[in-house]
């Protein structure tokens, strides 16, 4: 009876319906606004690669030109820094993917005593501020008298990439039917053959995704690299150095190129996934 009372007091009046209409579309509008907000700086970066800037700074719009695009390779050290970044990203992602995949396999497939400790140990690098991470690794190198440079950057990048690889592969591995490996063993495949023929092919997408993630994180990393780079200059370091004296538009050119290439790949993979799902 009390329920009937409550219902009588809140009839579905036209006013409530209007409120719902606004609310429904309010959220959509808000979400679209946020997405726009996310892309504005991207648009600025792209736009300013076409800026006809006079002088060294590139902060005010002074007209449209294709000059920077045509002379993209003219800035000394810029292209080299890109190559350095690519090399570091590739190496560190590769090693981190291998190390991390092994750990993920151990965590998901086996139960052992130090699980909790391992999980914490993997979580900490993600949770640690990059300043602390970078400075502590630097402290190690200083104590051991190891000169900072290319190798130390790679080492530091591998460090933080491992945790992200484990997270990615673990997610993929967990959704894996445990019985598949048992089925393989049931069908006379020993542990190594099972791994080669069943486990590895199945986790490959996850492993690959982890590699890409590590690559992206490494390529874009600034703070940790800053601490451990010595004389080596990566792309972000180049920008940092140039920021004080004036960032040439060619930097925007390459930034735009990177964005367009990677964004296209991402969008492509999304569309491929969608079409594969509808296909049967």
């Amino acid at each position: 009876m009390a329920v009937a009372e409550v219902l009588r007091q809140n009839p579905s009046a036209p006013r409530r319906r209007l409120g719902k209409f606004v609310k429904r579309h309010l959220l959509t509008v808000y979400a679209m606004a946020v997405l726009a907000y996310l892309f504005i700086p991207v648009a600025v970066v792209i736009l300013f690669s076409f800026n006809n800037n006079q002088g060294r700074f590139n902060f005010t719009w002074q007209g449209f030109t294709l000059r920077s695009w045509r002379n993209a390779f003219d800035v000394p050290g810029l292209f080299e820094s890109l190559l350095v970044s690519l090399r570091i990203a590739f190496l560190s992602a590769l090693v981190a993917t291998v190390l991390g995949t092994l750990i993920a396999l151990a965590l998901v497939r086996y139960s052992f005593r130090f699980r909790g400790t391992t999980n914490i140990l993997l979580f900490l690098p993600i949770a640690t501020p990059e300043v602390v991470l970078g400075s502590s690794v630097l402290a190690l190198f200083i104590t051991l008298n190891v000169a900072t440079g290319f190798a130390t950057i790679v080492i530091a990048h591998i460090l933080f990439n491992i945790s992200y690889v484990v997270v990615t592969v673990k997610a993929r591995l967990s959704g894996f039917d445990r019985h598949l490996e048992e089925a393989a063993m049931d069908l006379y495949a020993d542990e190594w053959t099972t791994f080669r023929k069943v486990t590895l092919p199945m986790i490959m997408p996850g492993v690959f995704a982890a590699f890409l993630l590590g690559f992206a994180l490494s390529f874009d990393d600034f703070i940790i690299t800053n601490f451990n780079s010595g004389q080596t200059v990566t792309f972000p370091l180049f920008i940092w150095g140039a920021a004080r004296v004036g960032v040439p538009p060619q930097v925007n050119v390459f930034g735009t190129a990177i964005f367009v290439i990677t964004a296209s790949i991402m969008l492509l993979s999304v569309f491929l996934q969608r079409s594969r799902r509808t296909q049967f």
Partner: peptide, 13 residues
């Protein structure tokens, strides 16, 4: 001995 699993465990790839 060979087993038929409850979830069939067919290799999807």
């Amino acid at each position: 001995a060979n087993t038929v699993f409850q979830s069939y465990a067919l290799f999807p790839h």
